[in-house]
Amino acid sequence: MIDVRQLKKSFGSLEVLKGINAHIREGEVVVVIGPSGSGKSTFLRCLNLLEDFDEGEIIIDGINLKAKDTNLNKVREEVGMVFQRFNLFPHMTVLNNITLAPMKVRKWPREKAEAKAMELLAKVGLQDKAHAYPDSLSGGQAQRVAIARALAMEPKIMLFDEPTSALDPEMVGEVLSVMKQLANEGMTMVVVTHEMGFAREVGDRVLFMDGGCIVEEGKPEDLFDRPQHERTKAFLSKVL
């Protein structure tokens, strides 16, 4: 579903991604961990070209992102993204946050978009917030709305960049449980997170990044319990 080959990316003279190779299958949940500044966000943002990359290639669902005839907006329609800081649209109600892209991008009629939005709000447990504005939501609620907003486009892949890092501890669970449910339904997911419990329970595979490279990868139980590399061991000893 996602094929990344020799991905390289620099910000000025700082090389942030130094040749990433990754293959993510349909329905797989891949968790990316690693120290701050290791390039996790940059990697994730390259997958929907929020960040342009310098070298290598990314192929999503058979589409080469760098091919000349590729319509990036079309690719982004199939790749949902959830941000650490939610990025809800503050001037719109929760309902309009969710229906905007389906109506403007997918050209759905309002009734269809609203029905879909209500169904998703029910799924994340927030039907009663449909007409609220983002300002009035707690962090956990806002992040669940953001997930519903991304899902409304019916993406094939969902990217999560530290979706619980900006939340108070008591709200982390509600967001993780929505993500868990999504994983159980077979969504292809790439999740950057510091929630090792989630990685172990939900992840099919864990990638450990450090210094712009994938240092080690494997099944959660292998990587967490029997890390092979010194850097992985050092990192895990700090976070576990």
Partner: peptide, 20 residues
């Protein structure tokens, strides 16, 4: 983040400007 969220939903730059 507003522009990024809009673009990540498949909106064009012009749509993101206009609606967000």
């Amino acid at each position: 983040g507003q522009m990024e969220a809009a673009r990540s939903l498949g909106m064009t730059h012009a749509q993101a400007m206009r609606y967000i």
